[in-house]
């Protein structure tokens, strides 16, 4: 079975979490490659550099990060050039589903949904199907 997605971008300050997600995504086989950034600032920098990097299909974005958090990343992301955004679908990640966060996320049209952390095989398959259907 061919992978449904080309590139997934992970944005999380916790290195072990990024490592775990990389492994789970690779094992699920839904994407050709995974790239991880350890801060929202670094992720923005990655997206702005069109020359060196391909556009991700999916971004998994942690909410609670030191410095610029997930929501602040979204604010900055919305002002990015369309060329930088590509056709990325964004999912926000959190350990506990805080209703306040959900309400806040609805303010960002470019956020497609929320998922629990850490990601597992089932969630990833479901995400892949959802993305393909869009």
């Amino acid at each position: 079975m061919n992978p449904k997605l080309n590139l997934i971008l992970l944005v999380d300050d916790d290195i072990p979490t990024n490592a775990l997600h990389k492994i789970v995504i690779k094992d699920s086989g839904i994407a050709n490659s995974v790239h991880a950034e350890n801060s929202a600032e670094a992720a923005l920098k990655y997206l702005k550099d069109i020359e060196s990097h391909p556009r991700p299909d999916v971004i998994f974005l942690d909410i609670n990060m030191p410095g610029m958090n997930g929501f602040e990343f979204m604010k900055a992301y919305d002002t990015l050039d369309e060329k930088c955004k590509g056709r990325a679908i964004i999912f926000m990640l959190t350990t506990s589903l805080n209703p306040d966060d959900q309400v806040r996320a609805e303010g960002f049209s470019s956020v497609t949904g929320f998922r629990n952390k850490p990601l597992d095989e089932e969630t990833l398959q479901e995400v892949a199907e959802q993305v393909v259907a869009l």
Binding site: D13, D14, I15, N38, S39, P66, G67
Partner: peptide, 16 residues
């Protein structure tokens, strides 16, 4: 970030 730094478990920098 000058207000947020006083919130519990809010960090400004990466653990690394």
């Amino acid at each position: 970030y000058r207000e947020r730094v006083f919130t519990i478990f809010q960090r400004l920098h990466n653990k690394a």
